[in-house]
Amino acid sequence: MSDTVKLQDAANGRAPAPSRQILALGVIAVLAALLPLVASDYQLRFVAEILIVGAAVLSLDLLVGYGGLVSLGHATLFGGAAYAAAVASRSLGADLTLMVGIGTLTGMVMAFITGIVVMRTIALFFLILTLIVGQIFWEIAFHWRDVTGGADGMRGLPTLSLNLGVTKLDLSSSFALYVTAAVLAFAAWAVARSFVNAPIGRALIGTRERQLRMSALGYDIARIRMMALLASGAIAGAAGSLYPFVNQYIGPNSMQWTFSAMMVVMLVIGGVGSLYGAFIGTAVYLGIQTYISSYTDRWQLVVGLIFVLTVMIMPRGIVHGVGSLFGGKGKQ
């Protein structure tokens, strides 16, 4: 069985052969464990950021890759949860479990509100309506100066910690943040994967492929989509809850539609419908942005070219494109 076929199966929501998957997970786990030995503080924190943003991009993949619902308001769920966590941390302290709990809940509530509004739309209408709803949330965050700090954002947040009952573990170091982000990223991936492999996930793919037939079969399409939105919101929210503590800062940019668009770009570069491609796309995008821009003012040109080439040559993302280079041509 070639890699290509395996990846295509993954894109269709079917689990690849378990033995290979365990092997792949093992390799990744070893690499992740070795990273802190070779990477500097700065690099570890950068990787942590990639994992956190990547988890949010992964949650977007649930909608785009499996539900065929392209959202331009996904940053709202991520950023909204980040704000909620940041605001709560000021009075309650930044305990990890509390933050993730608040973030997950906020992400789900905002996904639910968005879901009610966008429920009846699909395709471009869905795209624009999520954009509009997202921008309304953004406007609120931008103008609610007493709580969110407005355009200046919130700074001076407490550092992240984990309450272990007897002792409090400080999570502010780059290493601790990296470990936290890695655990979050893995959990996000596991949750998303079990979602797409569960009957609800299969049904979601059905609504993408054959909406009319699915409703004829008695599926409640609105309910299926709402479930996907909620799952996606929960993951994005959990990821968002850690985001303020990467830099002890959160600002309105993290909720703006441009951030949503960036997430879509990351997802496409990495590979739609593969879940783990989200992390690769995020790493490629943030890597280019952070490193190429040191050498040329034309970094946006580079990002644009890479993106367009990806869409034209490897429409299913780098993961799949590279795979098909080595594993022969896959079925289209």
């Binding site: 700065y42 690099q43 800062y249 940019n253």
Partner: peptide
């Protein structure tokens, strides 16, 4: 002199400051 672009975005600005200092 090393000049970096922050795109007028706080997140990006922080990333660039960390890069200048840390790397």
């Amino acid at each position: 002199l090393i000049v970096e672009d922050d795109q007028a975005k706080p997140d990006e600005g922080v990333r660039k400051f960390r890069k200048l200092i840390g790397q």
